[in-house]
């Protein structure tokens, strides 16, 4: 495995997908603000898309399936971002903060 033809190996793309998933997981746990958590969730979705596209390129008999799946992931991610950001704005209007730890009104 030469350094210059890494792009011909399925494992390399899987490693990139795993990296995006792991760093998004870290950000989702560690971020305090709701927008930061949304950014980390977008990274997780990007990791999933990279995995689908890699399998589509290397092992799929029908190479349109992975592309269509990735396009649908993009649509879902755009819808998710729109809904999440309007929830963030509604939360900011009520609490004057987008800190996830301030949303503790139901805490006993």
């Amino acid at each position: 495995m030469n350094l210059l033809n890494l792009y011909n190996f399925l494992e390399m793309y899987l490693v990139i997908g795993a990296f995006l998933f792991a760093i998004g997981f870290y950000g989702l746990l560690q971020r305090r603000s709701l927008v930061g958590m949304l950014i980390a969730a977008e990274l997780i979705l990007a990791g999933a898309s990279v995995n689908f596209m890699a399998f589509n390129r290397f092992v799929a008999p029908d190479p349109t399936v992975g592309q269509i799946f990735t396009l649908f992931i993009m649509g879902i991610a755009a819808a998710e971002a729109a809904i999440a950001l309007s929830i963030v704005i509604a939360v900011y209007r009520n609490y004057k903060s987008i800190d996830a730890e301030d949303l503790a009104e139901l805490k006993g």
Partner: peptide, 24 residues
């Protein structure tokens, strides 16, 4: 689209500058 929407939300929700980092 998504990055622009997120930056609009940051401008509208205006989080405090000092403590946006990790959790307490």
């Amino acid at each position: 689209a998504v990055c622009i929407t997120i930056s609009f939300a940051i401008m509208l929700a205006e989080p405090r500058q000092e403590d946006q980092g990790g959790r307490k």
